[in-house]
Structures are given as structure tokens and as C-alpha cells.
């Protein structure tokens, strides 16, 4: 019965999607507002990576909302996982010597790579979200490699709160200086150099640290070893 309803629903959805996609030929130019974004991005935002320009400048308010959603999810995981379930929560087995040493050795390099990704978010592919995920995976590596590793909860919470406050503060300074929230009030600098594009690198750094702290917190809460 369940499978039958499933098949009927799926065939309806398949037909609907096929009918819709029939009118959207693959690989055709149907840009509208995007043409404007592409043409004006470097002049408006100073960021050669147009996706970054959209995420952190044109639609920065949406990004603030997204970071808030991620924060809520992280908070929810924390609230769900602090009550230890009776059955689960076996300790992780000890890793071999190579894994332990390798995790300790690679950890700073992975952090550096994550930082590189979000510092160069306005010039090259990548940005705060990707860099934050890489940083969180560095902490995951420590959890897997070093038995009994505990992520300190307080610095993590401090980074998360401070970056959130910084994001909103930059937005309010933009409102005071330029008349709208998250205005790009710093000088744009010369295109293609690291210190350019005004507040975009700062905002992406803030986003990267915040996402990294939140995702590392999610991993720590899921493993359940983060209690103080």
C-alpha cells in the first residue's frame, strides 16, 4: 500500500518535472538580473568572484539569515544531545600510532588551508562556508585520531557569539555610514589584490570562523564528549 502510494506520487512528480523542464532548454542564456550583477559586480563590490559578491554584498542580509538558521540548528543539536541516551555513547576505540601522530601533524595545516580558503573568498573559488567546513573537519580529525579528545566548549561559544556580533555590527556601521544595512563602506582598493573589496573579506572571515565554530560544535555535540 505504502509502496503503491509512493509510486503514484513519484510518477506524478516525475511527469510534472519533465513537463516543466521541457520548456527550459539546457544551456541557454536566460539571465535577467544576473547580467546586471555580472556587469556591475567589480564596480559595486570590488570582488572578482561574482558569487562572493552576491552572497556577501548584494544578498548579505540573506546570508545573515542563513548563518542564523545554522546557529539555530547547532543550538538544537546541542540541546538534543546533552541528555545522554542510556543505550548509546560507546567510547571511540583508540586509534593506531600512525593515525594519532598524523592527526596531530596535519591539524595545523588543515586549519591553515581553511583560513586560506575564506581569506581569499573574494578572489578565488571558495569562501566562508567552505573554509568553515574545512576547519570543522580538522576538529573532526582530532576527535577521530586522539582518544579522549575534548573540544573546549567556552572558546567555541565565545568565537560563535563574537563573530555573530561582529557581523551585525558591520551591518549597523554600514547603515550609519552609507544609509543601508551591510553597506560596503570601506575603500574598494585595487581589484585582484588581497586587501580589496572593502568589507567583503572581513565579512567572509567572520562567516568562516562562525561556520567553523558552529559545525565543530555540531560534531562535538554529536560525539557527545564535549561536556565540561
Amino acid at each position: 500500500m505504502r509502496a503503491f502510494i509512493g509510486f503514484v506520487a513519484l510518477s506524478l512528480i516525475a511527469v510534472g518535472l519533465a513537463l516543466a523542464l521541457y520548456h527550459i532548454p539546457f544551456g541557454q542564456d536566460r539571465m535577467d538580473v544576473a547580467r546586471d550583477y555580472l556587469a556591475r559586480s567589480v564596480r559595486d563590490t570590488g570582488a572578482p568572484n561574482v558569487v562572493t559578491g552576491i552572497v556577501v554584498n548584494y544578498r548579505a542580509l540573506d546570508t545573515l539569515g542563513e548563518v542564523t538558521v545554522l546557529f539555530s540548528a547547532s543550538l538544537g543539536v546541542g540541546m538534543l544531545m546533552t541528555w545522554r541516551s542510556p543505550g548509546g555513547g560507546r567510547p571511540l576505540p583508540g586509534a593506531s600510532l600512525i593515525v594519532r601522530r598524523g592527526a596531530g601533524f596535519l591539524f595545523p595545516f588543515i586549519l591553515l588551508f581553511g583560513g586560506y580558503i575564506f581569506v581569499h573568498g573574494h578572489l578565488t573559488p571558495g569562501g566562508g562556508f567552505q573554509g568553515g567546513a574545512v576547519i570543522a573537519s580538522a576538529f573532526l580529525l582530532l576527535y577521530l585520531g586522539i582518544p579522549g579528545y575534548l573540544l573546549a566548549r567556552r572558546p567555541l561559544a565565545a568565537i560563535e557569539s563574537l563573530t555573530g556580533i561582529t557581523f551585525v555590527a558591520i551591518g549597523i556601521i554600514g547603515l550609519a555610514v552609507g544609509g543601508y544595512f551591510l553597506n560596503n563602506f570601506l575603500p574598494k582598493g585595487s581589484v585582484f589584490s588581497l586587501f580589496s573589496a572593502g568589507v567583503i573579506p572581513i565579512l567572509y572571515m567572520v562567516i568562516g570562523l562562525k561556520v567553523g565554530a558552529e559545525l565543530a560544535g555540531v560534531v562535538a555535540n554529536m560525539i557527545g564528549g564535549g561536556e565540561e
Partner: peptide
């Protein structure tokens, strides 16, 4: 990822 993490947290609680 946020949705997945929250869902898995709920699943672990349900299992408990």
C-alpha cells in the same frame, strides 16, 4: 547540513 544534523539528533533521542 543543519537540517541533517538536527534530524540525526532527533533520531538519536528517539532511539534513546
Amino acid at each position: 547540513l543543519g537540517v541533517t544534523a538536527l534530524g540525526l539528533g532527533l533520531a538519536i533521542r528517539v532511539y534513546g
